[in-house]
Computed example of a mutant assay.
Amino acid sequence: MRRTRRAPKSRTRSRTGPRNRRRVGNALIGTVTAVALCTGAWLLSSGARTHPPPQPSAAQAASPAGPGTPHHERQPATPHASATASASASGTAPLPPSPPDRVRIPSIGVDTPLMGLGLTKQGSLDVPPPERKNLAGWYEAGTTPGERGTAIVAGHVDNKEGPAVFYQLGALQKGRTIEVARRDGSVAVFTVDANEVYDAADFPDEKVYGAAPRPELRVITCGGRYSKQTGYQGNVVVFAHLTSVR
């Protein structure tokens, strides 16, 4: 996993979720690019360099301002239209906090458990163990998926054995759904607003991690250009917002 600029240390990591402790939000990772295993070890060891993971097309980038667009991309509403715009853009009402246990993305075949992630000693977002390629994680000091704000999920794109849980993330299209099963028994259903890829040097921290007025989700893995020397050069980031609850 590529770890870039340093952020303040978090409190001790817990895999049981934030049920009994105060969450500190995403500010701690506001200047840290969170990506999954970026070395591309499988591409090197297997000789599969002609078959890299799919990358988002330009058509999957954020649309011009309007409902369903990530809130950082929207233009301010005019006073007489603000109430209508707010209602149409909000999706569904926020849920109370509850740790997530599983994430499913049916259109790309993802159905995986989630573990809690903290920050490393260097101040970057921790990751699931690389040998557990079919396990994803969520930033448990931040927003829980379905709660008002921006929830963060990250996972590996590959490891030395082959494709991992988010290998197909770059192929996820706008309008598709992401389901998060929560510990309280509810399932938060998010609709994809955009799927974008960024070079690590130009990672938009505020756009990805910044606070949101509605329940939003970011799903992050490695992507972009690939180098034999340094691995993947960027990140694939999916932007989604809560649209229903089961």
Rank of each mutant, 00 (worst) to 15 (best):
V157Q: 10
L119A: 09
R23N: 01
T12I: 14
H156E: 09
A59D: 10
A93S: 13
I220D: 02
E179N: 11
Y139H: 05
D202G: 04
V127D: 14
Y209P: 00
S98K: 08
L135V: 15
N235G: 08
Y226L: 01
G175D: 01
S124G: 15
G185F: 00
P76C: 14
P8I: 12
P163M: 06
G146S: 03
L125A: 13
S82F: 15
G25E: 07
P76V: 10
L135I: 14
K228E: 15
E196S: 10
D202P: 03
G137Q: 05
I178W: 04
L37I: 00
P163D: 00
R11E: 08
T230E: 06
N134V: 13
P76G: 06
T50Q: 07
P99K: 08
I108Y: 02
F239T: 04
P97R: 15
G224K: 10
P56L: 13
V208S: 02
D205Y: 15
E196R: 10
V153G: 04
L37R: 07
D199P: 03
A58N: 03
S90D: 03
D202K: 09
G162S: 03
G123F: 05
D111S: 13
H241N: 14
P215D: 06
K174L: 00
P130L: 08
P128M: 03
G231N: 11
Q122R: 15
S86N: 13
G223M: 03
A181K: 00
I105K: 07
A151I: 00
A201W: 07
L125M: 12
A171K: 13
R19C: 01
Q229N: 08
P70F: 08
V103F: 09
I29F: 04
R22H: 14
D111L: 01
D101H: 09
G25P: 02
A171Y: 01
R22C: 10
G146N: 11
G162A: 06
G25Q: 06
T39R: 09
G68D: 13
L125N: 00
V35S: 07
T16N: 14
T230S: 09
Y226E: 04
G68N: 14
M1W: 04
A240I: 00
V32R: 13
T112K: 15
V157Y: 02
E131V: 15
A48H: 10
